[in-house]
Amino acid sequence: MTSTHIAQVKRARRLSHDAGWGYLMVAPTILGLIILNIYPFFHSFYMSFSETMLFGNWEWVGLDNYRKMFSDPNMWRATGNTLYFVLLTVPLGIFLALAFASMLNSQIKGRDALRAIYFLPMIVAPAAIAMVWKWLYNTEYGLINQFLSLLIGDDVKINWISNPKLALPAAAIVAIWSSIGYDIILLLAGLQAIPRSYYEAADIDGANFISKFFHITIPMVSPTMFFVLIMRLMAALKQFDLVYMMITDTNPAFQQSQTLMYLFYRESFQVGNKGYASALVLWTFVIILAFTAIQFVGQKKWVHYDQ
């Protein structure tokens, strides 16, 4: 046997040896994914074509759920509300996070303390945050109206979360407030990875702050921005907890604030309409897929992965 032959045999033996360990080590995860995710995915798909009957039986109803869904004004309103929520939270949230991350990246004292403070809301359950903000937004006694009254010198009584026009923007403010620290930390890490020499070279060329920001900072931090963007889009499209805790179904602004996942929760676990709810969750999935696809195509235009 030649030495290359021996090496080949050894390699083959190791591969089969590797394979055994490989399967053993991924087994719990793959098994878990099959039971918890793959099977449920197809089950949800199946359920969207059926209806719950008595005693946990299911009846095939074809496209009935989808027909009902696409002619349901509640569903279209919830879709509109969800997209509006995306529009309210994602661009402003990322802009603010980038602005604060850039400020923290300059030579300042107390950066770590500030970073820790901005991140604070992120570690608190959204359910608790929603309660606190509901109190701040209170029309009669809330801190925000009291503060505005003091500022203007007149009684301010804005119905932040019971005015149909204001409720969703008010929830969007809370969403941005509570997640901005997370985005700041990610973007700051991205900014700190940019070599100082790039800016020094630009200084020699006489570049000003604005052109450095758009020609060095933005391209260099674009992979992190893309990650943050995708994460924020997903979170906003799946919004449930803040709106659920702040705006109950007796609130006059309820119809204008109910998101798709809120509607899904009510249909599946309060009304008990699991077939219809499955159609709703698949509809949300299609919207998420569309947004993600657009972002992945669009990223080629602005995200730079090479150093």
Partner: peptide
């Protein structure tokens, strides 16, 4: 699985 919204699994997980 990472890309899918968790809610898509919720009803079947509940039924299980």
């Amino acid at each position: 699985q990472n890309m899918l919204p968790a809610q898509i699994f919720i009803i079947p997980q509940y039924l299980m």
